[in-house]
């Protein structure tokens, strides 16, 4: 047996105090260094070098008032607006203080039911569209704060928005094209638009 060949040092030689004292010293030293100094130093550096990003990539209106973050989605329900994806955040949709997904499993009847309801609502609001409904418009995101919809989902809504705002469809589609964000590796299915930015652009268009 290997046990018998051990060097004497492998026997339990440390008294208890010799374990607790270094454990405490090391724990407190590292807690101060890694728990306070490190995050504070990174905060200082980030605020100095990248203040916009470090504070939430906020968007302001013409009066300088905060109206949202470029990274965080908002709930839009207006007839003359582009709608965001469904959101499963606690309390209300797009609750920026309580992120999360629905966690509905693929075989859960509750998922099928809610998706069917959303499809019906979308079809009723978009009589111009006869094809399949873009999947992202009827499924909740993981964060519940997804700022994007797919390009297909924006184009799906374009006839409704144009109708409500009494604008030519081509003008609305041009607006969408200007907001298009390309996915990596040219994946057409991941081409997307930021809904808040798109609606802001829409407001500027309407305001003239």
């Amino acid at each position: 047996m290997a046990m018998t060949t051990y060097h004497p040092a492998s026997a339990l030689s440390l008294p208890r105090a010799a374990v607790l004292r270094p454990a405490l010293t090391l724990l407190l030293f590292l807690a101060l260094l890694l728990g306070l100094l490190y995050p504070l130093a990174v905060t200082g550096l980030a605020q100095l070098l990248l203040p916009v990003q470090a504070n939430g990539s906020l968007l302001h209106d013409s009066n300088g008032k905060v109206i949202g973050s470029a990274l965080i989605g908002q709930a839009f329900h207006g007839r003359g607006e582009f709608w965001s994806r469904p959101s499963a955040t606690a309390g209300s949709a797009y609750n920026g203080g309580a992120s999360g997904g629905s966690n509905l499993g693929p075989s859960n009847p509750a998922l099928t039911k809610v998706v069917a309801e959303r499809i019906a609502a979308l079809r009723a609001a978009h009589p111009e569209q006869r094809g399949p409904v873009p999947l992202d418009l009827v499924t909740a995101s993981g964060s519940g704060l997804d700022p994007h919809i797919s390009l297909a989902a924006a184009l799906y809504q374009a006839p409704r928005v144009a109708r409500e705002l009494k604008r030519p469809l081509a003008q609305v589609e041009t607006l969408i094209a200007a907001q298009r964000e390309q996915g990596w590796f040219g994946n057409a299915q991941q081409a997307r638009v930021n809904v808040l930015q798109l609606n802001l652009a829409l407001r500027r268009l309407v305001a003239g």
């Binding site: 997904g101 099928t112 094809g131 409904v133 999947l135 992202d136 499924t139 991941q190």
Partner: peptide, 30 residues
């Protein structure tokens, strides 16, 4: 492959399974 229980309801099944996924990651990144 997506979720056939949703595809039959009339959604675009070619997008895969997007419940619980954010659009900037999509199927590949998720």
């Amino acid at each position: 492959q997506g979720n056939p229980l949703l595809s039959v309801l009339g959604v675009d099944g070619s997008s895969g399974n997007l419940e619980g996924k954010d659009m900037r990651f999509g199927i590949a990144g998720s």
